[in-house]
Design a protein around this nucleic acid. Structure first.
Length: 282
DNA sequence: ATTGGTTCCTGCTGGC
DNA sequence: TGCCAGCAGGAACCAA
């Protein structure tokens, strides 16, 4: 599941190939994604130069020379792959929905079996007004995020800290995996009321979020089922998960007997699995 | 205003 | 061994 570190990894992989590249052609084989790919998508992009590749929350942004922006999202199972030559990119599979063909030769292909991803195009100069962008909270790795900002964002929230962190309006870029990992590192129960995370707890959580994201990016993201870097390299951070997917395994922070404690616990919040240690997280 | 439930989709898994 | 129901989950949307 691509979250912030995976998307960051993808953007870093795409930048050397796409930044400054001219799009010779854009092929849309399957427009039925999370939202329909706009009919004008190909025509509006063909012939244009890509100025920058950057990430906003879990969105991949291709900023074009005509001041319009491609907004991409990998959803659950999306993948971007670089093919160095058209020959390598021949015979697209049934989930290979969009090809970005550069004039220099390399092709970037968007594939997404579950079609939860999307590929949209903004009007000129309107990125920040876009409905998918305008409600996003601060980026946890950005300059406008710190423990005070987090505390203010959580103040008065009646929901759990788990749900609040998954909400992209609070903080943009975390998903289920990294919320579980950050809460474990911060020693905070996923069931705790969000509003009670103030002061030192907000500071601990801020540091935990930053640390886990930076470590994950350094490892190339996490490869569960789908994520690969655009050059085909896997990510390796899944081996560093402390709690995610580790139900009934011993808690790495406890020295207690799994037979007695049951090890890492699992519960369902907001329809998603939460993994946690009831002894270390309060 | 917030919040919880529903929905989209396909591949994988576990139970028989 | 093989089948298939159920699960996984990002986030917009809707209802309360």
């Amino acid at each position: 599941m691509p979250e912030l570190p995976e998307v960051e990894t993808v953007c870093r992989g795409l930048a050397p190939v796409l930044e400054g590249a001219v799009l010779r052609n854009v092929i849309v084989r399957q427009p039925k994604l999370r939202f329909p790919v706009p009919p004008r998508f190909s025509d509006a992009l063909a012939g244009q130069k890509i100025l920058t590749v950057r990430r906003r929350a879990k969105y991949i942004l291709l900023e074009m020379e005509k001041d319009n922006v491609v907004i991409g999202h990998l959803g659950m199972s999306g993948r971007m792959t670089i093919y160095q030559t058209p020959r390598e990119a021949s015979a697209p599979g049934r989930h290979d929905h969009i090809d970005f063909e550069t004039a220099a030769g390399p092709i970037v292909r968007f594939a997404d079996p579950r079609k939860f991803g999307l590929m949209l195009l903004t009007d000129q100069g309107s990125l920040e007004d876009h409905k998918l962008i305008r409600h996003l909270g601060p980026d946890p790795l950005g300059n406008d995020f710190n423990e005070t900002v987090l505390a203010v964002a959580l103040k008065g929230r009646k929901t759990t800290i788990k749900a609040a962190l998954l909400d992209q309006k609070t903080l943009a870029g975390l998903g289920n995996i990294y919320v579980c990992e950050a809460l474990f590192r911060a020693g905070l129960s996923p069931r705790r009321k969000a509003a009670t995370v103030q002061g030192v707890r907000a500071a601990r959580l801020t540091q935990a979020i930053r640390a886990v994201l930076l470590e994950a990016i350094a490892a190339g993201g996490s490869t569960l089922r789908d994520h690969k870097q655009p050059d085909g390299e896997l990510g390796y951070f899944q081996h560093s998960f402390k709690v995610y997917g580790r139900e009934r395994e011993p808690c790495p922070g406890c020295d207690c007997d799994v037979a007695k404690t049951g090890g890492i616990g699992r519960l369902v919040q907001s329809g998603r699995s939460t993994y946690f240690c009831a002894r270390k997280q309060r």
